[in-house]
Amino acid sequence: MLSIKNLHANIESKEILKGINLEVKAGEVHAIMGPNGSGKSTLASVLAGRELFTVTEGKVTYQGKDLFELSPEERASEGIFLGFQYPIEIPGVSMVNFMKTAVNEQRKHRGLEPLSSSDFLKLMREKKELVELDSNLTNRSVNEGFSGGEKKRNEIFQMAMLEPKLAILDETDSGLDIDALRIVANGVNKLKSPYNASIVITHYQRLLDYIVPDFVHVLYDGKIIRSGGKELAFELEEKGYDWLKKGIVV
């Protein structure tokens, strides 16, 4: 589904990603862990198409297409969803309008008719219940004045609305209470099918109790320095990152 080969990316001529290789197949769940500043969010942003970062080397194919040929909105419509580590507040744009535009733009991309207002509201109601999102939140401007946890929950709500093929969740678990954590995990697990895949970026092994990953990768200084099964997460929880860093030959 997604194939990343030797990906290098810069910001303001500072290299952040220094040769990432990763293969994600349909049906898989990958977890990415790693210390602060190692480049996890950068990787997620580059995959979603953030122009702030310049790709200097490497190739990414998504469903057989060159990812870098696609605009951010095309990537989204082709099924890539990025759950933001820091969701953006957009004062004056209502959640309803935002979501309706997003859903219908994606439908248009796929050659489908736009949803009628009533169908859209029905869909919204369903998904709100699914992720137990407070009804009042969708009557407000996008993320405006939402608490940290509410913002994260809103990301999952959006994911549920858009039903992506590849979900990249950047620390969606940070700042969540235990109930919310369960809901986030549920969201990911519901999405799980032989046709979909997820990349879950997290600092906590705790999340992986709910979302059982097929692979765990450690990102350090712009490179994946170790990959393993879910047991790697336990090891990290126990020992931290130092033992891995030491093994690096610079």
Partner: peptide
């Protein structure tokens, strides 16, 4: 904000 919206499929 522009990127956030585009990442949801809004052109």
């Amino acid at each position: 904000a522009l990127f956030y919206m585009r990442a949801r499929g809004i052109n």
